[in-house]
């Protein structure tokens, strides 16, 4: 190992800063006491309370409906868009336009969609959150797939055409399979982003169908409770598992 000497200090500061808050919440989620800040022995009872909480459960179901729907639609639209951008036009302007929803401030998109939905008289609910999540989701899929298309060998598609396959056969037998790792990565990205998305959902959701982040928001506004600690620890576990799994998958596909 090269001697990095004093550079160890910023690494230490960063990782302590990033992880101490999370560790504290996880430890406190096993606190048996109802008083969040006094230790009442090790207990998993707050996880039990959490599983009984119907608001949390319904929020999770709502979030999954939106995330699955948005992922399917955004992946289809984003993949088509990426192929169109790299095969049928080389316009940098069109590409920038398609990727804008991914970089625009979420608050701007949120108020824009609220204004649109109310202007056309649409009622707000899970369907409007889904429509909203597709906008930025599609841009993320398009960005990931476009990056992959840049590395693809177009001669495969040409060979398929020369051997007599029509455009549709070539698309499904050559283009989609070679793009599959990028499409899966894009879909995973949209799914995770949609699961956690709060600001846009907060503006475009109806009061009867809160998504999980909206439920969490209404919980954390009222301060520290052992139940939120348990929920936080569970969500940490889920996202850590997903990130590490995704890391493994990309490593495997890179190796192939």
């Amino acid at each position: 190992m090269r001697n990095i000497g004093w550079l160890r200090l910023p690494l230490l500061v960063t990782y302590v800063f990033l992880y101490v808050p999370l560790v504290v919440v996880v430890v406190m989620s096993f606190n048996g006491s109802k008083q969040p800040f006094s230790w009442g022995g090790f207990s998993t009872k707050w996880y039990g309370v959490l599983f009984e909480d119907t608001a949390v459960r319904q929020g999770l179901i709502n979030t999954l409906i939106v995330a699955v729907g948005a992922t399917v639609i955004a992946t289809a639209l984003g993949t088509l868009l990426a192929i169109g951008l790299s095969r049928f036009t080389r316009s940098a302007l069109l590409e920038a336009y398609s990727l804008t929803p991914a970089i625009i401030p979420d608050l701007a998109l949120a108020i824009g969609l609220l204004v649109l939905f109310s202007a056309i008289g649409m009622t707000l609910g899970l369907h409007s959150v889904l429509l909203a999540h597709v906008v930025f989701g599609m841009a993320f899929v398009a960005a990931v797939v476009t990056a992959r298309l840049g590395q693809n060998d177009p001669s495969l598609e040409e060979a398929s055409g020369d051997l007599g396959a029509n455009a549709i056969t070539t698309f499904f037998k050559i283009t989609v399979p070679t793009l599959l790792p990028a499409i899966v990565a894009g879909a995973l990205l949209v799914f995770t982003l949609s699961l956690d998305e709060f600001v846009i959902a907060f503006f475009t959701d109806g009061p009867a169908t809160p998504t999980l982040p909206i439920v969490i928001y209404s919980m954390v506004r009222f301060g520290v409770t052992p139940e939120i600690n348990a929920l936080a620890a569970l969500l940490l576990l889920v996202s850590f598992t997903v990130v590490i799994a995704a890391q493994r998958i990309t490593k495997l596909t890179d190796a192939v």
């Binding site: 919440v25 969500l235 940490l236």
Partner: peptide
């Protein structure tokens, strides 16, 4: 990966962790 890991956690939960940490009775 260790740098981005917390970033993939729910934003509200990450903010909540600081409500816990900075509380007048907090750690």
């Amino acid at each position: 990966v260790l740098v981005v890991l917390p970033f993939w956690t729910n934003f509200l939960i990450r903010t909540y962790a600081w409500i816990v940490l900075l509380n007048s009775e907090g750690p």
